[in-house]
């Protein structure tokens, strides 16, 4: 202990406002959702307060299981794609001159200002058969006839990665720009080729940042619900789409709430697991 005097109310005053906002806009709505997930659904009506596990029992269906797995799969895959492209990309940005770095970062930020809807429809056009990129490849003589890459899994993966990529770079940028430039130089004087230096020293010493950005993109992409509907077929719909469907079109709030909470629980477990594995690896190499 530092032996400080107990703080008076005045010293706590500055945190009252954020604490209040957190309470009003996060904790109370979340509590409401937890409560609703145990309420009884009135078919044709809304719901009546109660305490039953019916909603959670109803989750045990093939559709829910398949969608849950697909959601986790596409989130994990897009996180892997984003980090494996974003990490070398961010590394090259941080080695540029200051001015060039700023230009790149501003460009990435401006991508963030596009709404998910615009990005979704833009990609649906770009990947379509009639007006898409495949026409360009036909024109160059690389393909025989234009094909439709949309709607489908590829289109969905493209869309999600496009949205998540700027976040990946922004999360990786601080730790990569703080990397001591002497570290890769030292590796080179010790006989490591540039490729070997990249994997043994740069990736190695920034493992925590890589795990953090992977988790961030994973959690972020779990929440997309517009893109699967625009770019995917119904079998590419994620759990977020299913929850929206239950809540808005089926007016089954208790079911939607239980889905959301179960989904959150599973993803939280996965995130914790990832972090434990990341830590464990580090402890082993220590």
């Amino acid at each position: 202990m530092t032996g400080e005097k107990p703080k008076s109310l005045r010293t706590h005053l500055p945190v009252v406002y954020p604490a209040l906002m957190l309470c009003i806009f996060f904790i109370i709505p979340f509590g409401l959702m937890v409560a609703v997930s145990f309420f009884h659904r009135e078919p044709g009506g809304f719901y009546i307060p109660g305490f039953e596990f019916t909603n959670y029992r109803n989750l045990y269906t093939a559709l829910f299981g398949r969608t849950l797995l697909f959601s986790l799969y596409i989130a994990g895959l897009s996180a892997a794609v984003c980090v494996s492209i974003g990490f070398p990309f961010t590394y090259f940005i941080t080695r540029m001159r200051r001015r060039a770095q700023v230009v790149w970062l501003v460009f990435l930020m401006s991508v963030l200002s596009l709404s998910e809807v615009i990005v979704g429809f833009a990609w649906s056009l770009l990947l379509s058969r009639t007006a898409g990129l495949s026409n360009l490849l036909v024109w160059f003589g690389l393909m025989d006839k234009p094909v439709a890459w949309y709607p489908g899994f590829t289109a969905l993966l493209f869309g999600i990665c496009y949205i998540a990529f700027p976040y990946t770079v922004l999360v990786l940028y601080p730790s990569l720009s703080r990397l001591d430039p002497a570290l890769p130089e030292a590796a080179q004087t010790l006989g490591a080729t540039p490729i070997k230096t990249f994997f043994t020293v740069i990736v190695g010493s920034l493992r925590n940042a890589i795990v953090a950005s992977f988790v961030m993109v994973f959690v972020f992409t779990l929440g997309v619900y517009l893109l699967p509907q625009i770019l995917g077929r119904p079998r590419h719909w994620t759990l977020s789409v299913l929850i929206t469907d239950q809540a808005i079109y089926q007016t089954n709030m208790p079911m939607a709430a239980s889905m959301a909470i179960f989904f959150m629980f599973v993803s939280l477990m996965l995130v914790l697991l990832t972090m434990v594995i990341g830590k464990g690896k580090q402890a082993k190499s220590a």
């Binding site: 002497a182 130089e185 030292a186 080179q188 004087t189 540039p194 230096t197 010493s205 190499s285």
Partner: peptide
Amino acid sequence: TPAHKRNFGMVFQSLALFPHLTVGE
């Protein structure tokens, strides 16, 4: 000749020890 083929040993001002490896590594 690139640095990694010169077989020189160098100690940097910041030392540049690899933080994710042990002393032996």
